[in-house]
Nucleic acid binder design. Structure first.
Lengths: 192, 192
DNA sequence: TATATATAACTAACCGGTTAGTTATAATAT
DNA sequence: ATATTATAACTAACCGGTTAGTTATATATA
């Protein structure tokens, strides 16, 4: 049982669980070590500090999310549904993202920023071409779509915790997400 | 300078600052005491524990929010704008709410739950009367409105941190919030 | 009004347990 | 042999909560 790569992975998995549950300040390195079945110092050999371990876990999981969810400005309801499914299936990643946003003062990784910028650019293009409504500015529209799509993850204080009943019917929620986004972009008036 | 009520208030103010910045696990009772200009033990005399102090601060601030923001199912865009203004002006309260949702496992206070229920009921009524569109189920609609309205507070990982430029123009955002909500409820097709 | 008494408001110092991070040492593979 | 992988043992600082005691203020009494 001497395998650096495997140990590293076990630590990352354990850290994911710990950080998503307790956040950075609340996480305990001892607990991560125990849960990963390794010595605490091994964690400090592979990852310099608790904070760096957190950032590593977050980055890895966000990358996966970006790869999994394709984007097209002409299929925004579909995109929203994909985000919705990801958020509902990976509530731990959503929690990680929230912790990072609350506890860390660091900027977003440049790749995430530029991916966001690119989406905004494409939305603007689709608006100019009249394929979707131009009423809402692209940055606002994208933010609205992301927040609506993730609003039924447990991280949202206005989501499932306030609506335990509605939160059960995932298919209905998925349809509503698509419907809401469709409403935000429809061009029923030629002037839109 | 011996005034129980004033001391209590100073502690609550200091705690608000500390908890909204660091969360429950990250908050330091010593720091709260120092910032409130009192002895740490005084905090434990007035509030039993760190956790109870947090809950007290949260409750107090949420109550204020409920009082300040009136609700009418026939003025949903206006309601959303009021929520938006509150969220932008009181980002510390928003952070408190996020920390509570992430760190605490306790249910929402019953008054908050019932206030939410009542809003949903009124929305359903307005839908049945045909005053707003019936496409989206009331619980989904209310959650969508709340999340859109608060999506430009710093607590949203898809909000200002990804759109620093757009976040500056508060008036434009306010108008977009109203516009988005209007789109979610408009009845342009008689079948809606 | 001056003095004794009771109580409310507050504090300094401490404690047991915890926590992130280190050091020294052992085992394994090549 | 020697570099890599791993662990046990350790430490300094921290932290929530407590204890034992002091100071201010109100009330009662003579």
């Amino acid at each position: 049982m001497r395998n650096a790569e495997a140990s590293r992975e076990r630590i990352l998995d354990a850290a994911m669980e710990e950080f998503s549950t307790y956040g950075i300040a609340g996480a305990r390195v001892d607990r991560i070590a125990k849960s990963a079945g390794c010595n605490k110092n091994l964690i400090y050999i592979y990852f310099e500090s608790k904070e760096i371990l957190f950032t590593t876990v977050l980055q890895k999981n966000l990358e996966r999310a970006f790869e999994e969810i394709p984007f097209s400005p002409d299929r925004l309801p579909e995109f929203a549904v994909n985000v919705f499914d990801f958020a509902m299936t990976h509530s731990d990643v959503m929690r990680l993202l929230m912790w990072a946003n609350l506890e860390q003062k660091t900027d977003n990784p440049p790749q995430r920023e530029s991916a966001h910028e690119e989406k905004i650019r494409q939305i603007g293009e689709a608006q100019s071409a009249g394929r979707i409504a131009s009423t809402l500015p692209p940055p606002f529209l994208l933010t609205a779509i992301m927040t609506i799509a993730t609003s039924w993850a447990s991280t949202n204080p206005f989501g499932p915790s306030l609506n335990p009943e509605a939160a059960k019917d995932r298919d209905a929620l998925r349809a509503s997400v698509a419907g809401a986004v469709e409403r935000l972009i429809r061009t029923d008036h030629p002037t839109d």
